[in-house]
Amino acid sequence: MTWSAFSDVASAVCLLAGSFLALTAAIGLVRFPDLFTRMHAATKPQVLGLLLILGGVAFRVRDAGDLGMLAIVAIFQLLTAPVSAHMVGRAAYRTTTVRQDLLLTDELADPDTR
């Protein structure tokens, strides 16, 4: 098996897995009952899916400059996804009524733990 054939197969696997994760992220986004669970769907599979897609692209392009740009997107994604999730989550907890029926415990609402 030549290197080029191998990288094509690896690229295909990465692209398929990444697209599947993006699809499940979208399914979760529609199906999940409240904002917080939807955000779980929007952060984790989405980040991993995007990383896989970028990996799939990296297997197909050869130019070092393009690989650098892909690396930057991956790093930014890893840095920014938690930050934006935190910002949205905090705003959501402060402004909307949290559905307590979906929560086992809410240690943030407990007045003596605050």
């Binding site: 999940f32 009952p33 240690e107």
Partner: peptide, 13 residues
């Protein structure tokens, strides 16, 4: 969790 039909997940803070 996203692909399991029927029951909704329980969560905690």
């Amino acid at each position: 969790i996203a692909l399991t039909f029927g029951k909704q997940p329980m969560n905690a803070i």
